[in-house]
Write a protein that binds this DNA or RNA. Structure first.
Length: 199
DNA sequence: GCGACAG
DNA sequence: ATCTTGTCGC
């Protein structure tokens, strides 16, 4: 890590990791949820925040030029700014925000879900479609994800759920049991729609 | 040096 | 993530 910028980002992530709050939210009793995802077309990013109020869905799209490339373990600097902008509309109403990517299942316990959760001081859970970091251990018919020896999430099918901020392993477990969240499928669909429209 | 590597 | 044809399987 001799690149000064990446070296700086590593320190930033370490600061974020030191400020993560792991506490019980009670996902089973939460009905107002948000989800974040981003689609790309060239150097344009199409971020979408989807909000479910317990009855129906609403969403907000934010489009902007993305300057930073994708570098494994540094996804947050590329996508978080746009995601946060898209979430502003519902930020005060969401009891929990699901984010496309990992949370604590990251080499520095600072995946994009954790970064956004700590920066905004809100409950978040990371949901990723593939592996980035951590050992997988089976226990009680569950596959736990360990980061530096600590249980930080659960693998369910082909998906990886991990603590972002202000939730605990129990919350993640309850969410994971239901499979890939419908609201994230919607976020994925809507971001790709926005991308197609703006061409 | 080699392999792994969210979106 | 995105680019992309046909193809294997429920």
């Amino acid at each position: 890590m001799e690149d000064p910028l990446l070296n700086f980002l590593v320190k930033f992530q370490s600061l974020v990791a030191r400020n993560v709050v792991i506490s019980h939210l009670g996902v089973e009793n939460v009905n107002k949820i948000c989800a974040l995802d981003v689609a790309y077309k060239g150097n344009k990013g199409y971020a979408v925040a989807v909000y479910f109020d317990g009855q129906g869905y609403d969403h907000n799209v934010v489009i902007d030029e993305v300057k930073f490339p994708y570098i494994p373990t540094f996804l947050f600097i590329r996508e978080a700014p746009l995601m946060i902008k898209a979430l502003e509309k519902y930020q005060d109403q969401c009891q929990l925000t699901l984010i496309d990517g990992h949370g604590l299942a990251h080499p520095r316990k600072s995946g994009i879900a954790t970064v956004i959760g700590v920066l905004l001081d809100i409950p978040t859970i990371g949901v990723a479609k593939s592996r980035l970091f951590g050992e997988e251990v089976k226990e009680d018919s569950e596959i736990y994800i360990l980061a530096h020896g600590e249980k930080v999430g659960i693998k369910k099918g082909k998906f990886y759920f991990s603590i972002g901020n202000k939730v605990d392993l129990n919350d993640v477990k309850v969410l994971a049991r239901k499979g890939y969240p419908e609201i994230l499928k919607l976020a994925d669909k809507l971001s790709k729609e926005a991308k197609g429209k703006n061409s």
